[in-house]
Amino acid sequence: MYAMREALAAFRRAPVLTGLSSGMVGLALFVVGLFSLSTYNLQIALSAIEERVEVVVYLRDDARQSEIDHLLGELAAFEEVSQVNYVSKRDALERAQRDLPEFGQLFIESEVNPLPQSLEVELRPGNRTPDVVEQVASSARNYPFVEDALYGEEWVDRLFALRRIGFASTAVLGLAFAMVAALIIGTALRIAIFARRDEIYIMRLVGARNGFIRRPFLLEGALAGLVGAVLAAALTYSTYRMVYAYLFEVAWIPGSWVGIGLLAGALFGACSSAVAIRRHLREV
């Protein structure tokens, strides 16, 4: 009760200082928020590309329906496979006429349908890796009535290399931004605690327990961190709205990320206060 009252009183007594602390925390976390926003959208873009990873098994024209059904069952039995669709020669032609209108006339004038029948193998999310697609394609190639099984090997390898680079840079930059934010938050709260060193001194002088002295400052730090995190979330959201309205379509980060950000702000605040106050508790 006392701790909460004192923590709130600190905001009232020194609104400029606590406002500045929260502002610094907010700006530090705003950078993290912008980074999260771009990372999340990069992730979405990569996932959208990844969704297009599939294995297409081209079948000979003389393949019998029973053989095709058998292969379809074999491929569908893979744990990593979500769906196998049969595309007949006619379906392939219709699709080509629709998707490639520039060649439309050529397809109409041709007396023979040059396109093969095929099986399109879709993979479950998380299983669209080079290893899995190669495994599925290899097993299909074993059948004599299979002309070929393709998945854009080079393209998939590049996509996954890009993913790995994206993940590594996200981890390294994210950690760096978080550390910078932690340092700024720590400095801001150290200034706020330094301004109240007289109170800490007197508390120690008259025999207040360390836990009792620490609690209001930890709460104050957590509150400053939380206010800063809310400010950062608001700034990040404003940036998102502006980018969405004037530049290009982007997605807003998930609510859980915002929640983690708010929690991290409060936690950083409390931890920074704990470190800053430790020095003052040794002074008297």
Partner: peptide, 22 residues
């Protein structure tokens, strides 16, 4: 260090510069 508060409650202290909260 943890029990120092017990000493402080038995020993009051005043200084030349008062050390009051302005």
């Amino acid at each position: 260090e943890r029990d120092l508060w017990k000493v402080r409650r038995r020993v009051g202290m005043v200084f030349q510069d008062f050390r009051l909260l302005p």
